[in-house]
Amino acid sequence: MNEQVTHLEEKARQLRVAIVKTLHKSQSGHTGGSLSAIDMVTALYFHKMRHNPSDPSWEGRDRFVLCKGHAAPAQYVALAEAGYFPKEDLMTLRRLGSHLQGHPDSKVTPGVEVCTGSLGQGLSMAVGMALGLRLDQRDNRVYALLGDGELQEGQVWEAAMAAAHYKTDNLCAMVDANGLQIDGEVAKVMNVGPIADKFRAFGWQTLEIDGHDMGAILAALDKAETLKGAPTVIVARTVKGKGVSFFENKASYHGVPPSDEELPRALECLGEQCNL
């Protein structure tokens, strides 16, 4: 297990590098929320989820919904690393004609299950998937990754209510609780806390972890699988911009890509030589 944690930590570091390079190339997109989510995304794609990059619509696959669709770069670098499409494609992010749209688009990107980008709608779709898979008596699991600002959308709580009502224990939500949204701190813009208490009140099982502790992420994902009779939410405390010191905890880097000047410094933070 320890070896696996070390392996995944290194994978996550490489994916952070890929996020930074991809966003530097596109000069448009969401850096902070991609970096805060990538450890969880790495754990899902390279450890927990059953999936088949050479057959994206394989029936046995677990499902992943990136509810906070603006963090698409985090999903795209994972999909490329897993082999869903060539890594070179990352350099076309957000370009006219690219299959890597600004927000996840299931029509054009292999490995993307549904369209997201409008916050608050993803969890509902994840609930639908969980219900449908259960109807078919499949044991596939559904993972949904939400932002903490996203929790302000009422629809999230409509979905939370439905998930608990229908006892979708094949559903695991993860909240990327980085404490920031666009206009500032979540607690100051529109407080959503205490997050775990709210989900508990809605009938969910809750786990609280450090969302950058790979061992804790894996343990929580394993634990969630054993909790029956209700959906589980993993509330993961994270740092927006994690890994690049000058992006960390800054709301102003929400939707800002690394500049030419910042790129080498960002790569250096990630322990990577810049040879561009």
Partner: peptide, 8 residues
């Protein structure tokens, strides 16, 4: 709106 794409 540009790069954000069709969803936006």
């Amino acid at each position: 709106v540009g790069e954000d794409g069709g969803s936006h």
